[in-house]
Write a protein that binds this DNA or RNA. Structure first.
Length: 743
RNA sequence: GGGCGCUUAGCUCAGUGGUAGAGCGCUGCUUUUACACAGCAGAGGCCCAAGGUCCGAUCCCUUGAGCGCCCACCA
């Protein structure tokens, strides 16, 4: 009776959660090595391993992270309780461009300075400081979610350990010819002064004017007259009868923006005869399509816009003017010269912006480092089924093969199509960035001429070369290059560590579907080449958490909710349940505080069932260890056994929403509403033996429920568990986190 | 222009080839000694539309409508 007095009629998560989490941490059970040592599992037990998709150190976590963390922790706790050697690795991502942009922004707002005012070294110190603060906040938030991560293995994508992995990867891929330095069309952000990859682009619709210009005998259409200075090729379809009298290669004299020029006729099938006038001029330096046409016909390519977004001398009187300003001026001049035929005003087109900073992307022809995805190479080693060592293959080939052959299973299945489609259309991956925060490219040059042209020696190596005069490439690597190695760099690669041997390939990875291209596919690529292996057996994609009205959470709409606020008002267990029940795999979630409250009520219900049972605990003391159950009780226990089977089956199938709902329903509407109510007369009756028998019976079911509910609601279940007397046949009492999963 | 997803109770969403489910909300009763963050009772649905397959469809197939997302170099 004494214990029950301590229990208040309302469960108060604030009194419980931090204490319980500390207890788990001190127990060491988040670490599988400790689990083996303390006999919570064995050396030869099966393995369940997973990496936490590392959050960016750009600030704080949002409800999407809470959702993601919940799903993963459910898996991890389930597998740990099943006695598997369970490892879940935490960490954070330096998120090069996002973090740098954020710090630059703050620096400018607070001090009016740019990164160049501070210099590379000082600026990086600032970024490091910011990253460290973010990392602390994030770790705190993750712990508040109850995540049972092995903090002794925490990693950061910029750790020296991971930096070695990155350099090693770069060097190996370079030597295999899979990383090359070359001049290609890239996406240039004039604001952040860096290149970004195709996948970092965010397209925005924009209404602009569409101009029809007189170009000699032709009329051409354009939305961007400010790029047209260098246009000296006019292209049309070879089958276009309207222009049959013009021959490929024919020269035409015409009056253009800044005076007379000689244009050359080009016939190319890329032209859409039905669009506009069926004729266009090309700007090969600043447009992918135009570049391809120019390549096919060996045409000149001239830069028109510089890397600050200003026009170059080729623009004559407009040189030095920013393209934003230049457009109206140029249109004005065209009008004066009578070259403007007409203007459409309701033209919408899509402009590319940098999703990490918002700058408008200007395509440029520029030298960068790339990963060649379509280049054939000999597989250096392979654990992948039906790809042999020495076999000729491409990176794209590996990426497709492991998924199509189900060595990597994508769930829900519909995302497999997205993956395959994306990989099929994959272009070479631009991995260099003109940023300061990130992994420095492990390439050194000697003797550069005054124009910055490398006419001397190049050294690509894991360590700096010996001798004088070597200068390291100033650029850094795409943040996804290092996070693409996350599943194995965190386990110690390139060293052959025990962790790598024990826990790789990982069992599952559970990111949001929006990160399929950016991250998941990159890990498969990197792991496929560098380890000749799959990085994980399963990808379980979850959806996006939206607000009550279905909008995405974002800073601009000011609808962000801090998970910690929700936890403060309803507790972590309630938040976790609300992000589990009723959410189909891969579907988006609308966050609703009312739903959290509903599960806070459930948490309280579970708590009060415990209170009630403990109230009658004294009766149980007098009972024999083993009691005989009545036929009705046996029937109830059989029903419980069925529940155990169903819940286990659903968890194995990643159907967390089903498992949670079953448990919710059984606990409340079968156990509390029916079984307990039916047992009450016996429990409060005059026969002490029967009273004790009833208490044992209820405790039997309740103990099983606490175990089943633990992955979903770890705090309240562990707390109640710690107060329960030994139930049924249990001899020694463990922490619930390592209790054996019911069979 | 391709591809994908969604359309089920007032709201948010699960779900199944055989008379429809949850949470919240709503109505009525109950301050019963675990819980009012509760209990009991209840109202509420041509499961988007039209065809087809089937003994039988909300679930499978076809077409269409509305909404949403992803991908794509239309100047």
């Amino acid at each position: 009776m004494t214990m029950s007095k301590k229990l208040s009629p309302q469960y108060n998560p604030k009194d419980v959660e931090d204490r319980i989490y500390r207890m788990w941490e001190q127990s060491g059970f988040f670490n599988p090595d400790v689990c083996v040592r303390k006999k919570a599992t064995t050396k030869n037990a099966g393995v369940f391993s997973m990496v936490l998709p590392p959050p960016n150190v750009t600030g704080t976590l949002h409800l999407g992270h809470a959702f993601e963390t919940t799903l993963q922790d459910i898996m991890v706790r389930f597998h740990r309780m099943r006695g598997e050697r369970t490892l879940w690795i935490p960490g954070t991502d330096h998120a090069a461009i996002a973090t740098q942009a954020k710090v630059e922004d703050m620096l400018y707002k607070k001090e009016g300075k740019t990164r160049h005012d501070l210099g590379r070294e000082e600026f990086l110190k600032r970024v490091e400081r910011f990253a460290q603060e973010s990392r602390d906040t994030i770790v705190h938030q993750i712990k508040k979610m109850g995540a049972s991560l092995d903090w002794s293995r925490e990693a950061y994508t910029l750790d020296e350990k991971l930096n070695l992995a990155v350099r090693t990867a770069f060097v190996r891929m370079y030597k295999a010819g899979l990383i090359y330095h070359g001049s290609r069309m890239i996406n240039w952000d004039p604001r952040l002064k860096t290149v970004i990859s195709d996948d970092e682009i965010e397209w925005k619709e924009e209404r602009t004017e569409f101009y029809y210009l007189q170009y000699g005998p032709f009329v051409i259409g354009t939305a961007r007259p400010e790029t047209k200075f260098g246009d000296k090729y006019v292209v049309m379809h070879p089958n276009d009868r309207r222009y049959a009298k013009y021959a490929h290669g024919q020269k035409i004299e015409l009056e253009w923006i800044n005076g007379p020029i000689t244009a050359t006729i080009i016939k190319d099938r890329a032209i859409d005869m039905a669009f506009g006038t069926g004729v266009m001029t090309i700007t090969p330096w600043h447009d992918t399509t135009d570049f391809d046409i120019a390549e096919r016909h060996h045409l000149d390519k001239e830069q028109v816009i510089d890397y600050d977004g200003k026009l170059l001398p080729i623009a004559g009187e407009f040189a030095g003017i920013h393209i934003k300003k230049a457009r109206t001026m140029i249109v004005e001049k065209l009008k004066m010269k009578g070259l403007l035929v007409r203007t459409d005003t309701d033209y919408t087109h899509r402009i590319a912006t940098n999703s990490r900073g918002g700058g408008v992307i200007e395509p440029q022809l520029k030298e960068q480092w790339f990963v060649a995805v379509n280049k054939e190479f000999r597989m250096p080693h392979s654990k992948i089924t039906s790809i042999k060592k020495g076999q000729h293959i491409t990176l794209k080939g590996i990426m497709l093969h492991v998924v199509k052959s189900k060595q990597v299973e994508i769930m829900p299945k519909r995302f497999e199509k997205t993956y395959v489609h994306w990989v099929n259309n994959l272009h070479d991956w631009c991995i260099s960035r003109q940023l300061w925060y990130g992994h420095r490219i492990p390439v050194w040059y000697r003797s550069t001429d005054t124009h910055g042209k490398r006419n001397g020696k190049t050294c690509v190596g894991i360590r700096p070369p010996q001798g004088k005069g070597w200068e390291q490439d100033p650029d850094t690597l795409d943040t996804w290059f290092s996070s693409g190695m996350w599943t194995f760099s965190t386990l110690g690669w390139p060293h052959a560590t025990p962790d790598l041997k024990n826990y790789h390939p990982t069992s599952v990875i559970a990111p949001g579907y929006e990160i399929l291209q950016l991250w998941v596919s990159r890990i498969i690529l990197m792991s496929g080449y560098l380890l000749g292996d799959i990085p994980f057996r399963r990808v379980y994609f979850h959806g996006i958490v939206r607000d009550k009205d279905g909008r995405k959470f974002s800073k601009s709409s000011g609808n962000g909710i801090d998970p910690l606020e929700v936890i403060a008002s309803c507790g972590t267990d309630a938040l976790r349940m609300s992000m589990t029940v009723g959410i189909g795999p891969g579907s988006d979630v609308r966050f609703d505080m009312d739903k959290v409250k509903a599960y806070r009520n459930f948490t309280n219900k579970l708590w009060n069932i415990g209170r009630f049972i403990l109230l009658h605990h004294v009766e149980r003391e007098k009972a024999a260890d083993k009691v005989n159950f009545s036929p009705k009780q046996k029937k109830d226990l059989r029903e419980l056994a069925t529940l155990v089977k169903k819940v286990t089956k659903h968890l194995d199938a990643f159907a967390f929403h089903h498992a949670a709902e079953l448990l919710y329903h059984y606990t409340w509407h079968t156990f509390a509403d029916k079984i307990i109510e039916e047992t009450k007369p016996q429990l409060t009756g005059g026969d002490p033996g029967k009273r004790a028998q009833a208490a044992v019976f209820l405790l039997e079911i309740y103990a099983t429920l606490l175990k089943l509910l633990h992955p979903f609601m770890p705090f309240v279940t562990e707390e109640i568990w710690s107060r329960l007397p030994g139930a049924g046949t249990r001899k020694k009492k463990n922490l619930l986190i390592v209790e054996q999963w019911p069979k």
